[in-house]
């Protein structure tokens, strides 16, 4: 007994070190696991409020830039509106503003954005109080940003598309060729579209858009252009490098998308497997 106590006293520093290290490592491993809820995250009350104060301060430094972006987006939206009103001339158009629209859009601010790690997350300033739930898609004026991971009352954490765990449905514009969009962890400006069949027509410069199979994102949202492509798996599949339209290192205003039909679609999709 005496020896055990002596041992404990002699190695108390080492034992404390090992104990705390195990805690730290378990937090780290959890943080790399996409499906598990982590204890250490940036949507808590204190952390969230400090981060939003910080965003408030840094806002003043790029008002100019943001104004330009907003006015460009306004111009684009106006063009689309004109196009719609042109094609809908004389038709019933109140459906555009009813409650039962297929996609609801929530504007949000980015408070925290990472892009140099292999698993990056974004924190935004709206949460379950505003109706945000996990697995909603997040887009910005120039492209896609990520998928909501978890939300507290006022803040939400978004899995960035620059995260090795994420895999999104995407397709080549103008064809029905689909693939899964992944990030290999190196360059924040490119992603890769994998599992594209060899017979698909892949041309450099073609546009990549979100696919119709995705329940997270609306279809036809622009993602990027094809930079180059290579054949993998003994030449049976293409791996396409996609240059993103949006700059993931410079995000500020984003939109969270809620899909009305998501639950219904998922029920249909999983039907056959339960029989």
């Amino acid at each position: 007994m005496q020896q055990i106590i002596n041992f404990l006293i002699k190695y108390r520093n080492l034992l404390l070190y090992l104990f705390l290290m195990v805690i730290a490592l378990s937090f780290t491993i959890q943080s790399h696991d996409y499906h598990r809820n982590t204890a250490i995250h940036s949507t808590g009350y204190l952390t969230g409020n400090v981060l939003s104060t910080k965003t408030g301060i840094y806002d003043y430094f790029d008002l100019d830039d943001q104004n330009k972006k907003l006015s460009t987006e306004n111009a684009m939206l106006r063009m689309k509106l004109l196009e719609i009103s042109d094609t809908l001339l004389g038709e019933e158009s109140t459906f555009l503003f009813t409650d039962n629209i297929p996609y609801k859009v929530f504007p949000a601010r980015v408070m925290k954005n990472d892009f140099y790690k292999s698993d990056n997350f974004i924190t935004i300033d709206i949460g379950s109080d505003q109706g945000i739930e996990s697995d909603m898609g997040v887009i910005c004026p120039t492209g896609i940003v990520g998928v909501v991971d978890r939300s507290s009352d006022q803040f939400s954490r978004v899995i960035s598309i620059l995260n090795s765990q994420i895999s999104l449905n995407a397709q080549i514009k103008g064809t029905a060729t689909i693939g899964s969009l992944k990030w290999d962890g190196n360059n924040p400006y490119t992603m890769s579209l994998e599992d594209v069949p060899r017979l698909a027509k892949v041309n450099k410069g073609d546009t990549i858009i979100t696919g119709k199979q995705s329940t997270t994102f609306p279809p036809d949202i622009l993602i990027g252009v094809i930079k180059d492509a290579e054949l993998t798996e003994n030449g049976s599949r293409y791996k396409i490098n996609v240059e993103l339209f949006n700059d993931m290192t410079n995000l500020d205003y984003v939109n969270v998308i809620k899909n009305r039909d998501k639950a219904a679609l998922q029920v249909i999709d999983t039907l056959g497997t339960n029989e």
């Binding site: 705390l20 730290a24 780290t28 250490i40 995250h41 940036s42 981060l51 990472d114």
Partner: peptide
């Protein structure tokens, strides 16, 4: 770690 969403990486490094 809570501010940077790094799990326990800062904690492990500081502790060591």
């Amino acid at each position: 770690d809570t501010f940077q969403n790094t799990g326990g990486a800062h904690a492990a490094a500081c502790l060591t």
